[in-house]
Design a protein around this nucleic acid. Structure first.
Length: 994
DNA sequence: CCCCAACCGTA
DNA sequence: GTACGGTTGGGGG
């Protein structure tokens, strides 16, 4: 090796773990063998070697080695026995992949290096220093901070998964110290994953600051007495020895004895057939094809290699054998089991949807994203070229950049597009992305700051061109959280036609398995971290709106969003078919996007004067109540502080019956205070009153006016389609699904929600929809009969349970039956029912027992639902929507019980949610058909209630249309065994309409 | 300025 | 006992 040579040192061990966690375990061989880490590893190596032939890249390895850890016993354990003592065993699915990755390395014709007693990092350090000594350049392929200490002007790092170089300035930016100081910094901060102790309480910021001041660790320890902060000084002096031991642990050895000399690491030519044989054995079809193309081999003529699998654990073998994968509940196996049981049949070429889904996931997992290829479109001719290309492929991902997160306030700043590359560059399977800046301004630092930036297509011209594309039904538009872009574009005169939403796809597939935000999905499916928004626009006080972001930075961010969205679509779309969820997505999810967008756009009028008057009243009452509280307490304190309140009630005043919350605080919940009030103490009642008054004031009367839109003068809530596990919507900013109704005082808030002159608010709500769903799914004869006969369901329950006739039934008896009915829906427990009814747990247990005796079908439903959830990891609504409960088999009994209750509730709550979704989707066309669409508009949804604004003269015509649609909304998909009933009223405010 | 716990409004 | 979102206090930085 000589000057000018370039040695690549691949941190194989580090890469294994990263690939394993970044790439979903969906990547399995057909026999169930997990190969996700192998897949990520092979893709990364292939990319590295491909780039190596590409002279444009400028970083061309002449030598390359892949370095692994040999075992966990190293010299560091002798220095510090606790080193890495907190490491748990590797995940089961990873164990067989360690051996496979070494095979992969050899299949790539690359040296595979490990040395007993040393970690991969030490070997890397040794080679790096040797190569540097002879004048060669070194690139360490890793992102591990433990290796950053090795960086010099000749030694670089490269994060292969993020496709990012890490240089000396990056280390300084991230850690605040130069690479050579990293050893001292890590010695101080320690490392919890490796169990390196460090100095307790010293984090990277403090450590960097101290190193800045004292230069290095030894100097710092010698002069620790000079540190001004007393605690910090004593802490460092007390832990000086710990820091020295830590330093020995983190400093990499550069004297590891090595069998392979630098010369042995020279990069040999690829052995195509050998590599293809291995890749075929792993069933990596995409990579096999690529390698065959580049190496000019006929892949079909090469047999899959025989690759021995070391399971590491004999017990692991049998249950992964083909066919028996349905007992596990992770992504991979539920996908596989769904594919084998309910997926559509294979297409003529023998590929099932599941095959396609798996190969897509495989193709994109860890596939690098090259932001430098993004284009900024600054002239109309180029834009037209892109639009033509999008029309040709019929598929385009798009994203809007705006000035606000609120689609009703947002002004368009730019638009990004991503398309598959086979048009602009024939034969390619890559993705091209571009950003079209429209209203960027010059930076604020500029003397002429705030002016329109040069090189942007005039908004009108660009919108006219884009309108043709976005409204073209023959081109599928893909976006993430499309409702946002739909609304923004609609406000700019463009109404989207033909679209898919990757967020909703993820939601349909994986509700209950985490968020469906783009960044998270990108991590999960692409192994890629998109640029965080705050990195381009800043955060907090120093943040700027997107129009002030520099256009080049904006391009990287915005084009990436479209790029990632298109990749996600390519991965998720085939999963819908593979898992039998296309109908749910297309019938229950996607059509709701324009419906909700229109509701959000319409908003509702909220009367500022009414709220202001209520606020004044509440303020007076709250102040008076506050005074009475101080009087009764004998001192002034912050009533709003549960902590202070608890201390006064249970500490100083010594009231009995206190209970503690999980953090050891006294509980001062309304329940506790009510119980105290029942004992005769006057103060708790006042607190309850005060809380109600201040809650109404702060959450409603004071907050709502702030949401009145400056132009429309109406309040536009935002609906989230993908934030519940069950399929319900949620509402925020403001939340109009929790406007008070239970108390007279609270209902006054509703009088402020009014219709425009000449109109009424019409409220239509399902009566007892969840109990009706329960009667349907559990097939309870008495419940079905009661609903068919239209009798009081809670009274019927009480009558069945306690043998009391419905006529003249005491209200307390009915109340208890009602609580039990609700409890059933919530997956009842004796504990919860006892709490709700303020009775003994044993008594509640008796009630439940009795209930199950009278309605054995309920017990059966609960047991079979739990069994289904345990078997599949999810439950289904009557329409087939899935809610996942990955923790259902938790070994923690209370966690498990919680998941069981949620799994029992989800089909009931979720089926009701699906019913009203169907109603909402059908209502707009029904109103159009009735000639009422201009006179009756749907404004709000509150889980089982829809609120419309209707012209006075159209109320009588609209009401039966709405009621009819709602009552028959389950049909024809599901024919319910109980009728659905809807009550509707119209009035000039929401209180009277409800 | 950000995060969490406690509390409470709805279905 | 289910599902949410918003406000406040309080601790940490």
């Amino acid at each position: 090796m000589k000057k000018g040579d370039h040695l690549f040192l691949v941190d194989g061990s580090g890469f294994i773990f990263r690939a394993f966690h970044a790439i979903p375990a969906l990547n399995r061989k057909s026999d169930g063998l997990p190969v996700n880490a192998v897949s990520g590893f092979c893709n990364m190596l292939w990319k590295l070697l491909r780039d190596a032939r590409n002279t444009d890249v400028g970083v061309t390895p002449t030598h390359l080695a892949v370095i692994f850890d040999y075992s966990s016993t190293t010299f560091r354990k002798e220095i510090y026995p606790l080193y890495k003592a907190n490491r748990s065993a590797p995940p089961e699915d990873l164990i067989p992949q360690f051996g496979l990755i070494r095979h992969a390395t050899r299949a790539f014709n690359l040296p595979c290096i490990e040395t007993e007693g040393f970690e991969a990092d030490d070997i890397i350090a040794t080679y790096a220093r040797q190569a540097e000594a002879v004048g060669a350049d070194v690139t360490i392929v890793s992102s591990d901070k433990d290796l950053m200490q090795l960086l010099t002007p000749n030694v670089h790092m490269y994060d292969a998964m993020k496709d990012k170089q890490i240089g000396i300035p990056d280390v300084i930016e991230k850690w605040g110290v130069a690479p050579e100081k990293m050893i001292d910094l890590q010695a101080m901060t320690g490392d919890s994953t490796d169990n390196v102790p460090g100095i307790p309480g010293i984090g990277p910021k403090t450590a960097a600051q101290l190193l800045e001041e004292f230069g290095d660790l030894e100097t710092l320890l010698a002069r620790a007495g000079e540190i001004k902060q007393i605690k910090r000084r004593e802490n460092i002096i007390a832990n000086a020895e710990l820091a020295r031991v830590s330093r020995q642990l983190v400093e990499l050895r550069t004297d590891v004895p090595l069998d392979m000399k630098l010369e042995d690491l020279v990069l040999e030519p690829q052995d195509g057939p050998k590599l293809i044989g291995f890749l075929k054995a792993m069933e990596f079809t995409t990579l096999t094809r690529r390698v065959a193309e580049v190496c000019d081999c006929d892949a079909g003529a090469i047999d899959a290699a025989v690759v021995p699998v070391e399971w590491g654990d004999a017990a692991r073998g049998p249950d992964l054998d083909a066919g028996d994968v349905s007992t596990s509940s992770d992504t991979a196996t539920s996908a596989l089991s769904a594919a084998s049981s309910s997926a559509p049949a294979a297409s003529p070429d023998g590929k099932t949807p599941a095959d396609l889904a798996a190969s897509r996931a495989n193709a994109f997992a860890g596939k690098p994203i090259d932001r430098s290829a993004y284009v900024t479109i600054r002239d109309i001719e180029t834009l037209e070229l892109w639009i033509a290309a999008a029309r040709e492929t019929g598929l385009v991902a798009f994203d809007t950049e705006t000035t606000s997160l609120d689609p009703m306030q947002a002004e368009l700043v730019g638009v990004s597009l991503a398309i598959q590359d086979n048009v602009l560059s024939p034969g390619s399977t890559d993705i091209r992305a571009a950003y079209i800046p429209l209203t960027h301004k010059t930076g604020v630092g500029d003397l002429l700051g705030g002016g329109h930036a040069e090189g942007q297509i005039p908004m009108k011209e660009a919108l006219a061109a884009l309108k043709g594309l976005l409204e073209d039904p023959s081109v599928l538009k893909v976006a993430q959280n499309l409702k946002y872009d739909y609304l923004v574009m609609k406000r700019h005169g463009v109404t989207l036609q033909s679209f898919d939403d990757t967020m909703l796809m993820s939601y349909v597939l994986d509700a209950g398995k985490g968020n469906h935000g783009m960044d998270g999905l990108s991590e999960k499916w692409l192994g890629h971290t998109p640029i965080p928004y705050k990195d381009v626009a800043g955060s907090g006080k120093s943040s700027v709106t997107f129009d002030l972001v520099d256009i080049d930075r904006a391009t990287a961010y915005a084009a990436e969003d479209a790029d990632v969205t298109l990749r996600l679509w390519l991965v998720l779309k085939p999963r819908l078919a593979a898992e039998g969820l296309t109908r749910i997505y297309e019938r229950l999810e996607r059509p709701l996007v324009p419906v909700l967008a229109h509701m959000e756009e319409r908003g509702i009028t909220v009367d500022r004067q009414i709220l202001s008057r209520l606020s004044g009243e509440l303020a007076q009452k709250a102040a008076a109540t506050e005074d009475e509280v101080y009087e009764l307490a004998g001192e002034r304190f912050n009533i709003g502080s549960p902590k202070q309140l608890g201390d006064i009630l249970f500490g100083r005043m010594g009231l009995p019956g206190g209970s503690k919350t999980k953090t050891g605080q006294w509980s001062t919940s309304a329940q506790v205070l009510e119980d105290l009030a029942a004992e005769g103490a006057p103060l708790p009642r006042k607190i309850v009153d005060w809380r109600q008054l201040t809650k109404l004031k702060s959450t409603y009367t004071d907050a709502l006016p702030g949401y009145i839109h400056p132009q429309t003068k109406r309040v536009h809530t935002g609906y989230s389609l993908a934030s519940t596990t069950t399929g319900r919507l949620s509402s925020s900013e403001p939340n109009l699904q929790n406007i008070p109704v239970r108390t007279a005082e609270g209902r006054k808030i509703r009088t402020a929600f009014i219709s425009t002159p000449g109109h009424k608010l019409l409220s239509a709500d399902y009566s007892q929809i969840e109990l009706r769903v329960l009667a349907h799914v559990a097939e309870i004869p008495q419940l079905r009969q009661a609903f068919a006969d239209g009798i009081d369901i809670h009274a019927m329950t009480a009558s069945e349970m306690f043998g009391v006739p419905v006529e003249g039934m005491p209200s307390e008896v009915r109340r208890r039956a009602k609580a039990i009915n609700f409890g059933i829906i919530y997956g009842i427990s004796a504990f919860g029912l006892a709490n709700q009814l303020s009775i003994e747990r044993s008594e509640a247990g008796e009630y439940i027992k009795k209930y199950f005796e009278r309605f054995p079908g309920i017990k059966d439903y609960m047991e079979s639902t739990k069994a289904f959830a345990r078997e599949h990891g999810y439950v289904e609504t009557i329409f087939g929507r899935r809610a996942h409960y990955p923790e259902i088999k938790s070994s923690n009994p209370s966690m498990r019980a919680f998941n069981e209750r949620a799994a029992i509730n989800a089909p009931i709550q979720g089926s009701a949610a699906d019913v009203i979704r169907r109603a909402m989707i059908q209502i707009e066309p029904a109103l159009v058909a009735a000639g009422l669409s201009e006179r009756c508009r749907m404004l709000l949804q509150v889980h089982d209630e829809l609120i419309f604004e209707v012209e006075d003269e159209a109320v009588d015509a609209a009401m039966p249309v709405i009621v009819d649609i709602m009552e028959n909304a389950a049909m024809p998909a599901v024919s319910m065994r109980v009728p659905l009933k809807v009550d509707a009223r119209a009035a000039h405010n929401w209180d009277e309409a409800h």
